[in-house]
Amino acid sequence: MAFAKQISGEGALKRRVVKNRLFAGSVIFFSMLTISPILLIVYKLVAKGYRQINIDFFTKKAPDTYEAMVAVGAGEVIPGGILNGIAGTLYMVFIASLIAIPVGLLIGIFLYDQQSKRYAGVVRDVVDILQGVPSIVLGLIAYFWVVKNITNGFSALAGSTALAIMMMPLIIRSTEETLKMIPETIIEAGFALGVPYHKIILRVLIPSGFSGLLTGILLAISRIIGETAPLMLTALGSMQVNFQIDKPTSAIPLLIWEFYNDPNMVDLIWSSSLLLMMMVLLLNLLSRQIIARRS
């Protein structure tokens, strides 16, 4: 086998070692490139946004374009805050959660209960389809169902409906996954004591999986809190703090969109984005903490 010896000589071996190093080097290089945007984005938001974050930012409504123009002209910090956006986001997320959490939990429990039945498989597929639907399409749907037929105009309820439909598949999936992890023996012990079914769900299943269910819900909220496109078609936005369910309502992402389109207020996009991102990160951190404490 002289040929093998010839090809596997020192030169070939060196080439392979070099190729191996180059490959590892490019894996590391591309990985660093992958994580650089997050660092750049966070840096940009903090560097440009921190100046604007003060008490007013949380307690005052967004300024109008004239006020902003005057401040920018004088080289001052733009007055006012984004209270109408913060209130709207919290309000719509709250309404969306009121719809999505109970329904999501029930369907998650249903899928866990039915396990491998054929109909459960169909439901699972439908949930998958729903999870893949682009958020803008959900905005269209909420527009037709709620804006056109229920509130006869742009409204918080329409925005919440779009957000709720986005949340549901996430909660259903995490609920089923969490319940699957609960040891069968715990449930059987309940049955052995003659506990009725609904009590087993309420007293055994939900408490044992509580941290998992909560994590799923927090992550679902973190996914929808920054949504903009569906709200443009449904909640529209408002200069006022609004808690009426059938009236147009602002939200932090909607305000960012307005600031972005208004040359006088464009400086406000950074602080608002910073706040929005911190809310998402906080929710993620919280759920990580819960997971960490559980294990």
């Binding site: 994580i35 997050i38 984005i41 938001l45 973190s222 920054g226 960012i256 972005y260 929005l276 998402v280």
Partner: peptide
């Protein structure tokens, strides 16, 4: 750490990506 940073990419709202794309 790298995994956490990559996960964070999923947490950035679409509109913030738009701003970053626009200004950077």
């Amino acid at each position: 750490i790298v995994g956490t940073l990559v996960d964070m990419l999923a947490g950035i709202p679409s509109i913030v990506y738009g701003l970053w794309g626009f200004y950077v």
